[in-house]
Write a protein that binds this DNA or RNA. Structure first.
Length: 108
DNA sequence: AAGGTGACTAACA
DNA sequence: ATGTTAGCCACCT
C-alpha cells in the first residue's frame, strides 16, 4: 500500500464535524514533513470518491485552496453543512483548529 | 529513465 | 515581520 492509499484510508476515518491538517495526516502515516504529499494525494482524488477531502485543511487553520476545480468557497460550505464553523476574514476562510481538530492518533 | 512539480510546513536569514 | 529553503513522494512529461 503506497502513501496515497494510506492518506485516503486515514482521511476516510475523519468523522463529520471534525477536521485534520495536512501535516497531522502525514505525521500519522509516517513522517511529519510529508504534508505536501498529502495535499497532492487529495488533489488527485476523483470527483466521486468517498474520501471527505474537505475535512483536511492547512495547519494555519485556513483553507488553502484558492482557484482550482474545487474553490475554498465550496469547501467552506461543505464544512459548515457538517457543523464546522468557518469564518471569512479578508478573503481567507478560518477554522478553529482547537475546537474541531481530530486527533489522528485516536483511531476509531 | 530521470527530473520537475505540487491542496504543506517548519526552520532560518 | 516577510522571504527563502529543505524535506517529503507519487504522478506526469
Amino acid at each position: 500500500m503506497n502513501f496515497y492509499q494510506e492518506v485516503y484510508r486515514l482521511v476516510r476515518q475523519i468523522p463529520a464535524g471534525k477536521i485534520a491538517t495536512y501535516g497531522s495526516i502525514a505525521a500519522a502515516i509516517s513522517t511529519p514533513r510529508a504534508a505536501r504529499v498529502v495535499g497532492f494525494a487529495l488533489r488527485a482524488l476523483p470527483e466521486n470518491s468517498d474520501v471527505p477531502w474537505q475535512r483536511v485543511i492547512a495547519a494555519s487553520g485556513t483553507i488553502s485552496i484558492e482557484n482550482m476545480e474545487h474553490p475554498a468557497e465550496e469547501q467552506a460550505q461543505l464544512l459548515q453543512r457538517e457543523g464546522v464553523e468557518v469564518a471569512l476574514r479578508d478573503g481567507v476562510y478560518h477554522i478553529d483548529l482547537q475546537k474541531y481538530f481530530w486527533d489522528t492518533f485516536v483511531i476509531q
